[in-house]
Design a protein around this nucleic acid. Sequence first.
DNA 1: GGCACGTAGATGACGCATCATCTACACGAC
DNA 2: GTCGTGTAGATGATGCGTCATCTACGTGCC
Lengths: 157, 157
Amino acid sequence: MTGTRWLDDDEQRAWRAFMRMQAQLTAQLGRQLQADSGLSLADYEVLVQLTDVPDGRIRPYELQRNLQWEQSRLSHHLTRMQRRGLITREECTEDGRGAFVVLTDAGRQAITAAAPGHVAAVRRLFFDGLTRDQIATLQRVSQQVLAQLDAAVETGG
Amino acid sequence: MTGTRWLDDDEQRAWRAFMRMQAQLTAQLGRQLQADSGLSLADYEVLVQLTDVPDGRIRPYELQRNLQWEQSRLSHHLTRMQRRGLITREECTEDGRGAFVVLTDAGRQAITAAAPGHVAAVRRLFFDGLTRDQIATLQRVSQQVLAQLDAAVETGG
DNA sequence: GGCACGTAGATGACGCATCATCTACACGAC
DNA sequence: GTCGTGTAGATGATGCGTCATCTACGTGCC
């Protein structure tokens, strides 16, 4: 490593703006959701997965794959959501190691109540000022970066 | 509120890709930084601010303005960084309420050692697959969203 | 059967982020 | 002076995220 190629001015500006935007956006979306419905963004994502699936039942490992969360994060989070009555756990008879996460009525009510305000906030804070082209570019950029992130994981870093 | 305007397919795809990318990117950058140099991304940002300023001294409220962190987050974080010897605090004689945050030698060494690997990771995971145009668009989009976030804060939400 | 290895999931410890609250000082009006 | 209001900063409680580790079951091989 004989010389680091630092970020040039454009890159620096883009990077700082991006990182700041990303941090503030999730912070504000999280605050809105918490204040209006008592859910965190993480709760919301879990509940979305559960409403996307028949019977509101899913195996934790599938949830993990869909959310791409660390396994222990998911486990801890489910414990907290269970304590608050948003989900329950049931044992899985086909696989003795496994379990099911089940959406409760309270969980379904919570996300039903939360969704309109959350989507409105996503529009107001994010989509409203952007053009179709910008949104398309953003989507391609995100996919590209995701591919790079996957590649880095696979090559061990 | 008689009907929510949900996200259409394009918006949904863009939003999910963006949120996932953002989460995975900061997770992987954080892991790299932590593993290679024992710093968190938050530590790194604080240290960057301190190296950007003469004498490595800055008032916490300036740091807060630059980083746009919650005040109490900053205060807690500085306490932890102080415990690890990366910074010290000094009292401010001009303003009896105030304080100074001062970069220690250990802090300077830590960021000097961490920076090349971090920048390399930012390139590898983020910039390398993107065109100049995409980077420019990303920067404009970020500024636009930041403006919307500021506007939302000012109108009380 | 017994063993090795892989996978599903839980847990404890610890650092991080947020909220509510508190102290202390500055500054201006009176 | 002192009283109100604003600003700088710290703190305790609590929920969140990560790492290391653990249990328990499945699967294939001998």
